[in-house]
Simulated scan of single mutants.
Amino acid sequence: MAQETSTKQEQFDRIAKGKGFIAALDQSGGSTPKALALYGVMEDAYSNDDEMFDEIQKMRARIITAPDFSSDKILGAILFEKTMDNAIDGIPVPVYLWEKCGVVPFLKVDKGLADEQDGAQMMKPMPDLDALLARAVAAGIFGTKMRSVIKEANETGIKNVVAQQFEVGKQIAAAGLVPIIEPEVDIHSATKAEAEAILKTELKAALDALPSGTKVALKLTIPNEAGLYDDLADHPEVVRVVALSGGYSTDDACAKLSQNPKMIASFSRALTEGLNVSMSDAEYNAALGANISKIYDASL
């Protein structure tokens, strides 16, 4: 138990204070075919969901075992449930991440997005969340991530998204995990800046209402106004504020992120940009290493 507690503290300190970024390796059912296609694995390469997830597991294993995927520049990695349950070289993926790479493992726990209402998409119900959290704790997971999407500056929609995120976040914290709360603002929204201003107000109120000692991280779209979320990063209950790339290219995302010194990256598509299944190991490792360095530099 003492060993477990010291590991948790080490992981907490790494996420709270470490230099680097959190890699998002959590594409799930809906986004997997697109992620595979960008990687050069087309839909004719698999004939069912199991084969599709085998392909994405190979892709993720190649990333995780690459020489530059290490604690030098990467603080944590967010996994999809099937990845958490999988292994690399016979070692469970969460254990491999921490013991071989020095990277803190997180788990995506949401079940996808509900239909749009009041300019936002809340999360679908998660009736089996407690069971999943128990499995995550047993697997050595440190924290979780869950995503909602805000499409427009609609106060009702944004209030509902934040309320749901924090309600589930408290359930996750009670299970002994650190929740990453992710109310993404769509980068294509015509009212993005206005939505971000409303979101900041709602997040501040929700953070202030948390029971003392309930720690959360925030994963937010890089704001139009540089430094908008700086004071949220300084909130006593916030472990870290991380940024999603949201569809920006790697270069655009890194340029925008560098204007927000209290945010670090948690990029998915930007991390894997330019990688292809047909690359030699040397080509692949060089391309991934360049992406990692670019995202790391923007996160400093």
Rank of each mutant, 00 (worst) to 15 (best):
M1L: 08
T5L: 08
T5N: 12
S6D: 13
T7N: 03
R14W: 09
F21N: 03
A24D: 07
K34Y: 14
L36C: 07
A37G: 11
L38K: 14
G40N: 10
Y46G: 05
N48M: 10
D54F: 10
Q57G: 11
M59L: 15
R62A: 13
F69T: 13
A77W: 00
I78H: 05
N86Y: 14
A87L: 00
I91D: 00
V93L: 00
V95A: 01
L97T: 00
W98L: 05
V104Y: 00
P105M: 02
K111F: 11
G112K: 04
L113P: 03
A114P: 03
D115P: 09
E116F: 04
Q117I: 08
Q117E: 12
D118L: 01
A120F: 09
Q121H: 15
P127S: 06
D128C: 02
D128W: 13
L133T: 01
I141L: 02
A153L: 05
N160E: 13
Q165P: 01
E167M: 10
Q171F: 01
A174V: 05
L177G: 01
I181H: 04
D186Y: 10
D186H: 10
A190V: 10
T191N: 11
K192M: 12
L199G: 07
T201L: 09
E202P: 03
A205L: 09
A206S: 12
A206V: 09
L207Q: 08
D208F: 10
P211A: 13
S212F: 08
A217V: 02
K219G: 02
P223M: 11
N224K: 13
E225C: 02
A226G: 07
Y229V: 11
Y229L: 10
Y229S: 08
P236D: 14
V238C: 09
V238K: 06
G246F: 10
S249V: 06
K256V: 02
Q259D: 14
I264S: 11
A265D: 02
R269F: 04
A270Y: 08
L271C: 08
T272W: 01
M279V: 05
A290F: 07
I292F: 08
Y296G: 01
S299R: 04
